[in-house]
């Protein structure tokens, strides 16, 4: 009997703590984990920045398996967390399934579009940022060959590669662009060894600047570039600091700002589709003290001009996902 009492007490206490956590925002990280030095970590940084500035708390979870996606979303929604932010396109299917069950909860999904009245979908114009770093790559290259390492071979990653090639060719019409993908499964996001091998293969084909869009695999890409006298270009988060002097720049995707803004807006998140590009500071080429010696004044003027022209619509960067084809690069 007393055990029953204790159990009931425990449940009651638990219910209380759950109540206290209500209306806090929540974030769900993808399988890569929140310390991937890239996409998820950027999201995590945005959440921590919000927590530090406002003194608020947020719920978070790193998933262990695919089956937990829906579970995590439902549990957070039922606990009253609002809004619930999820990082990664893999959440599109589970979110589409459950969004209707929680009409009062706002969901924010990054990198995918889910059409529902309570979902805000945030996508980035990665092709624009990739275009800029492509220009820089072509200008920095001495061999006239630059390369790209993608993670998993999906349209989203081809979009990076396509913009990169177009930018490189805009800066130097003679440039040769080599592109390789790490794999076709999610394991390709976390295979630094394969990333290193690809860079070495690209070097033997003459490349001396390499841009990666490969999540955790990119750690190996940047390392190999630094070890072999090449220049690397980081992605998603600012990775210039990882190998000072060997990382030309990073194609920064401000996932952190999306999370920060969503947490700040709280329940007032505007549903709909937001597409963030150069004009909204959603993507950019990172400049800081770690790469200032690598970036010439010429490059700076070139990308500033290009940025303005893209914003004004004078330069149109091709979006691979619009028609699943790329005029400047064949994969």
């Amino acid at each position: 009997m007393s055990i029953m009492h204790k159990l009931f007490g425990a449940t009651a206490a638990l219910a209380l703590t759950a109540g206290a956590a209500a209306a806090d925002p929540a974030i769900v990280f993808d399988l890569g984990g929140k310390f991937d030095k890239s996409f998820n970590e950027s999201a995590f940084n945005g959440a921590t920045r919000w927590a530090e500035e406002t003194g608020g708390t947020f719920a978070e979870v790193e998933l262990q398996s695919d089956a937990q996606r829906e579970q995590a979303l439902r549990r957070f929604a039922e606990s009253g967390a609002n809004p619930i932010v999820m990082a990664g396109f893999s959440f599109a299917t589970p979110l589409g399934d459950i969004a209707g069950d929680y009409p009062d909860t706002k969901f924010v999904i990054i990198d995918a579009v889910v059409e529902a009245p309570n979902v805000k979908s945030v996508v980035f114009n990665e092709e624009q940022g990739s275009y800029l770093v492509g220009m820089m790559a072509a200008m920095a290259s001495e061999t006239g060959t630059v390369s790209f390492v993608g993670g998993m071979d999906i349209p989203l990653i081809r979009k990076f590669g396509c913009g990169y090639a177009q930018g490189a060719m805009a800066a130097d019409p003679e440039v040769e662009v080599i592109a390789n993908m790490t794999g076709t499964t999610p394991a390709a996001w976390n295979d630094p060894v394969k990333g290193t091998e690809l860079v070495l293969a690209q070097k033997s084909q003459g490349s001396d600047v390499v841009f990666h869009a490969a999540g955790g695999t990119g750690v190996g890409v940047l390392q190999a570039a630094a070890d072999n006298d090449m220049l690397g270009i980081g992605v998603d988060a600012n990775q210039n600091y990882t190998h000072p002097g060997s990382v030309l720049t990073s194609m920064v995707k401000r996932v952190d700002n999306v999370v920060y803004d969503a947490f700040t807006a709280g329940e007032a998140v505007e549903p709909g589709i937001a597409s963030l590009g150069l004009a909204d500071d959603g993507v950019s080429a990172a400049m800081d003290e770690y790469n200032e010696e690598l970036v010439t004044a010429e490059m700076m003027t070139a990308i500033e001009e290009a940025t303005q022209q893209i914003i004004d619509g004078e330069i149109e960067v091709h979006d691979y996902m619009s028609d699943e084809s790329c005029p400047s690069l064949s994969f």
Binding site: A18, G33, A59, E62, L63, Q64, Q68, Q71, A72, F76
Partner: peptide, 17 residues
């Protein structure tokens, strides 16, 4: 139970394994 732990505590997922 492990999934719930991951959701509501800061016990890292590696430790749940």
């Amino acid at each position: 139970g492990g999934a719930e732990l991951a959701l509501w505590t800061s016990i890292p997922r590696e430790l749940i394994v």
